[in-house]
Amino acid sequence: MRWTSHGRRLVYESDWVNVWLEDVDIPTIGRIEHHVLTMPRASLTSVVTDDQDRVLLLWRHRFITDTWGWEVPAGWADPDEDPEHAIRREVEEESGYRAGRVTLMTAYNALSGISTMRFTSYHVTDCTHIGAPTDITESSKIEWVPAKDIPGLASKGQISDGPSLTALSYYLGIYRNSDTAVS
């Protein structure tokens, strides 16, 4: 069933998120106001690997969920910023590694039922360590983790961030085993 929109009104706006109430007609239900979240900037994730089959992960605390866990380097593209440039910048700021090769893995809608949020995920290789991360708020530690250990970390709840789980699962289960993977 396709919903019909009769317009929307802005409820809240910021540099991080916009909240709208959309006037929609849902077949068999009728007309309702539906919450819609839009993000002013594009969301990006990266799976950074090395030639020893390891993945670069950041250990960090998320205050909203009050949880600690491993995450992949990620962030937002600034308005009019090329997404590949943005993920290069994010990897360097968050990890202290300069990206060599950056290859598009996939793009997906993160919350299709309520948001326009779209993530683009990249595979990053051939990195060079250039020093300490410039954004020290991003993590408490940075480690190269064997790719074979990723499923165990996830099953123990040590990787519970949705964008990281999605990027890592896609990399391990689809991308790494496809003809499009770049080694």
Results as ranks from 00 to 15, higher is better:
residue 96 G to Y: 08
residue 41 R to L: 08
residue 181 A to H: 10
residue 92 E to T: 14
residue 16 W to Q: 14
residue 47 V to K: 00
residue 59 W to N: 05
residue 126 D to T: 12
residue 149 D to H: 07
residue 6 H to V: 02
residue 1 M to K: 07
residue 37 L to C: 02
residue 161 D to T: 10
residue 144 W to C: 04
residue 51 D to Y: 05
residue 17 V to E: 15
residue 179 D to T: 03
residue 14 S to I: 11
residue 175 Y to K: 00
residue 67 T to G: 06
residue 22 E to Y: 04
residue 118 R to Q: 15
residue 173 G to N: 15
residue 83 P to V: 14
residue 71 E to M: 13
residue 79 P to D: 13
residue 81 E to R: 05
residue 178 S to T: 00
residue 118 R to P: 03
residue 138 E to T: 13
residue 42 A to T: 02
residue 104 L to F: 15
residue 117 M to V: 14
residue 63 F to W: 07
residue 113 G to D: 14
residue 13 E to L: 04
residue 150 I to V: 11
residue 159 I to S: 01
residue 69 G to R: 01
residue 86 A to F: 06
residue 146 P to W: 00
residue 178 S to R: 02
residue 86 A to K: 02
residue 99 A to Q: 10
residue 83 P to W: 08
residue 150 I to P: 01
residue 15 D to T: 13
residue 21 L to K: 12
residue 150 I to H: 01
residue 31 R to E: 13
residue 151 P to L: 09
residue 96 G to A: 09
residue 31 R to M: 09
residue 121 S to V: 06
residue 40 P to T: 09
residue 6 H to S: 07
residue 126 D to L: 08
residue 98 R to I: 00
residue 162 G to N: 04
residue 83 P to Q: 14
residue 64 I to S: 14
residue 33 E to G: 02
residue 160 S to W: 06
residue 173 G to I: 04
residue 46 S to N: 08
residue 183 S to D: 14
residue 14 S to K: 10
residue 175 Y to I: 01
residue 37 L to S: 05
residue 131 G to W: 06
residue 34 H to Y: 07
residue 181 A to G: 03
residue 165 L to P: 00
residue 9 R to S: 11
residue 21 L to A: 15
residue 157 G to K: 04
residue 61 H to L: 11
residue 138 E to M: 14
residue 91 V to A: 08
residue 36 V to Y: 08
residue 77 A to Q: 10
residue 81 E to H: 11
residue 99 A to K: 09
residue 45 T to E: 09
residue 25 D to N: 12
residue 113 G to I: 04
residue 82 D to G: 11
residue 180 T to S: 13
residue 5 S to D: 14
residue 11 V to H: 05
